[in-house]
Design a protein around this nucleic acid. Sequence first.
DNA 1: TCAACAGTTTAGAATTATTATAATATAGTT
DNA 2: AACTATATTATAATAATTCTAAACTGTTGA
Lengths: 142, 142
Amino acid sequence: MLKNTEFTEKLRSSGLRPTKQRLKICEVLFNREKTFHFTINDLVKNISNQLNEKISLATVYNTVHAFKKKGYLKEISINSDKSYFDTNISNHHHFFDEDTNELIDCNDDSIETPNVKKNITGKKINSIEVLIKVATDNQNHN
Amino acid sequence: MLKNTEFTEKLRSSGLRPTKQRLKICEVLFNREKTFHFTINDLVKNISNQLNEKISLATVYNTVHAFKKKGYLKEISINSDKSYFDTNISNHHHFFDEDTNELIDCNDDSIETPNVKKNITGKKINSIEVLIKVATDNQNHN
DNA sequence: TCAACAGTTTAGAATTATTATAATATAGTT
DNA sequence: AACTATATTATAATAATTCTAAACTGTTGA
């Protein structure tokens, strides 16, 4: 569990001003045992539930994108109507339950990161994401 | 190159009525040498360019989703503001060029499909998608 | 400590993608 | 040719995200 001073330091060291709103967002995102997935909407709700405060939607968008840029968050590639973010920035993959729209971390090595034997010329690989879509067996029979 | 009669047959055999609009969409999507990626917007533009006709946006959405359900199209998991579809329904993976927002097929075996050693209990794996994000080396330094 | 400035926040409007709706039209069958 | 079920359409509604311009605030340097 980190304290506000530590968040302040961390933000400052990466060139982000430690504003009230950012510190609050840090608290909600990073002051917990386990990493988790969220949408912008989830986060806004969490802020109002946990801190009983309101940070404007636009600010939450700005902050999440700033944190992503600095590598404190990962955005998960999924074709959904909304964007999913992950506070787990380690190299890992995901299951997506199409019945419940639930995203499940795969932290052990049950999904191995595939080798990429050939890359696009002149480009650097920024990420390798694996998404396994699952559903109950009796779905999709129409 | 398939003819309209063949599309008619194919549609009918999968329980979809071979309406004018669907046949036209088939023509634009499947009457070509190479498979390709598109967004709904791209498709609407192609229809008006190639056939000089207009099919309503809602119909294009309906048809694309119907084709996806029947397995004639794949939706690609990517966190973008819009959905990408692929007429290549074979098992393959993608590069995504973050500089140009271009999606590139990987048809050879330079990206191998990862093994999934453990699955969610009671669920069936519907797909395994690998997305490699690339960019020029001098990006993301802010 | 304080003023100035650069960067941040805000609320609301604008934009964009997608879905819902309800009336109309049409394909396939009788 | 008429009937029925389904598809199409245009429009409205919704929902996610971005834009904008004004107000505000943290930081820096005096």
